[in-house]
Design a binder for these strands. Structure first.
Lengths: 222, 222
DNA sequence: AGAAAAAATGAAAAATTTTTCATAATTGTT
DNA sequence: AACAATTATGAAAAATTTTTCATTTTTTCT
C-alpha cells in the first residue's frame, strides 16, 4: 500500500510519513500542489492525503485536476477548520472524505483504510500496463484487442494481478484458482501458466510472468 | 422503473406522479414518513424522491432507517431551502443527491436518471426472490446452496433478470447472449432455456421462466 | 562442465460445455 | 376434435476446456 501525503507543514507531513511506515505502508511526501500532481501522474497510489492549503496549486484544485484526468484514486482532504462549505465543495469535486485539523493518526489511518476498502470494492477492472482485466466479462483488453480467457486463465491472471510484484507459490495458486490443496502429482498450475503466458505474449509482446525457481512465480508490470 | 414519491404537499406530489407516468415510469406516492417506510419495506423501487419535511417521520429519519435496513435504493432528498448544513447531513445519512425547491421536473428527472444509472453500475449482484446472481463469480446462490452456471446459462439468466417481468424474444436473447443474429435453423436458445430451467427448478422448486407462446419468454419473480 | 531438481512443453486423454438433430409435447386456431 | 405452428426434450455430435503424461529445457549447485 502506497500513500501520498501532500502537506506543506513539514512537521505534520513527516510525522504522517513516519506513522505510515510504522504501519507497514509505504509513503511519499509532497510539499506543494505542483509536486503532488507530478507525483500522481508518475506513479500509482492507493490513497492520497491532501491538505487544502498548500503552495502553488491548492488542494481543491489538485483534487479537481486528478479527477479530470479520470484518476479515481481515493482522496482525503485535510481542512484547517471545520468549514462546512468547504466540505461540500470537496465532495463535489470528487474527494472521498475529509478530516479537520487537528487530527490523530488513528483517525487518519481509519479513514484511509475505509476509503481504500470502499474504492477496491467498487473496482470492476484491474489495470496493468496498458491492459485491462475486466472482472465482469472476464476478458482481457490489450491496446489492440479483446482476448477471451478461459475460467482458469482468468482466475490465475486475477490472482497474479492481486499479488503483482510478489512471489506467489504454487500452493497459493492451487488453493485460490483450483480450490484444492496443492498436490505434487499434477502439473496443472504449470500448464495453465504456460497457456496464460502464451496468450499474454501473443497479444502484448511482453513477459509479465517470471518464474522464481524453487519458489513460484512473480507477475511484473509497469 | 418504479419511483416512490414521498411528499406531503398534495399538489407537488401529484404533479410529480403525473410527470413520471408520462415518461413511462411507474410511480407511487406517500404523504408521510410512516407510510413511506411501509411502502419501502413492502416493495422494491428503483429510486426514492423524499421530501425533507413530511409528517410523522422526517425525511432525514426515513433515509437513515432505510440505510440501517441495508437497503441501498437511491434516495434523492427534496429540501425547501438551499440549506448547506442540511446537504451535508443528507449525504452523511446516505442520501445520494438532493434537490432544492422550487425545482423543474426536468431537473428531477435528470437527477433520478443519474442516481439510478450510478446505482446500477455499482451493483455486483442481482437479487430475485431469495436468490442472488453473483455477477463476479457468476454463480447463483439459492437459500440452500451455491449453483455453478455455465457461461451461457449465466448470460441468459442475467438477461432475464435485467428484463424481469417483460417478454424477451429469442431474437433478443440470441443477440445478447450469443452475440449472433437470430437464426431459425438452430434451437440453442430453447435448449439453454431448458437447462437453465432445470437448474433453477431443481434448486428452488419454482418456475421462474414462463413461455409466451409465439413471442418469447418472461421471467417472473417476487 | 555435469548432475539433480524444477519448470516448460507438446500432445493425448478426460471432462465439460455447446450445438445439432430427431422426435415428442404443448398451444392456439379452426 | 383436428391441424399446424411452436416449444420442449433426450441424446448424440462437435467444440472447448481441463487435466494428465512423457519428454525436453532450464536452473541451481557442486
Amino acid at each position: 500500500m502506497k500513500i501520498l501525503v501532500v502537506e506543506d507543514e513539514v512537521q505534520i507531513a513527516d510525522s504522517l510519513k513516519k506513522n505510515f511506515l510504522a504501519e507497514g505502508y509505504s509513503a511519499q511526501v509532497c510539499y506543494d500542489g505542483e509536486d503532488a500532481l507530478k507525483a500522481i501522474s508518475n506513479s500509482e497510489f492507493d490513497a492520497i492525503l491532501l491538505d487544502w492549503r498548500i503552495p502553488k496549486i491548492s488542494g481543491i484544485e489538485v483534487c479537481k485536476r486528478v479527477r479530470e484526468a479520470k484518476n479515481e484514486t481515493p482522496i482525503i482532504l485535510l481542512t484547517a477548520l471545520s468549514d462546512i462549505s468547504n466540505k461540500i465543495q470537496a465532495l463535489n469535486l470528487g474527494a472521498d472524505d475529509y478530516i479537520t485539523k487537528p487530527f490523530s493518526f488513528e483517525e487518519v489511518l481509519a479513514r484511509i483504510q475505509a476509503v481504500i476498502r470502499r474504492y477496491k470494492s467498487t473496482l470492476k477492472v484491474i489495470e496493468f500496463d496498458n491492459n485491462v482485466l475486466d472482472l465482469l466479462t472476464r476478458n482481457l483488453r490489450t491496446p489492440d484487442e479483446e482476448i477471451k480467457l478461459t475460467e482458469k486463465e482468468f482466475e490465475l491472471l486475477k490472482f497474479f494481478l492481486e499479488n503483482k510484484g510478489n512471489i506467489v507459490t504454487k500452493e497459493q495458486l492451487s488453493e485460490d484458482v483450483w480450490k484444492l490443496p496443492f498436490s505434487p502429482t499434477t502439473n496443472i498450475v504449470e500448464v495453465t501458466v504456460k497457456n496464460l503466458r502464451k496468450k499474454l505474449e501473443a497479444n502484448t509482446n511482453k513477459k509479465y510472468i517470471k518464474t522464481a525457481y524453487g519458489e513460484g512465480y512473480i507477475f511484473i508490470s509497469e
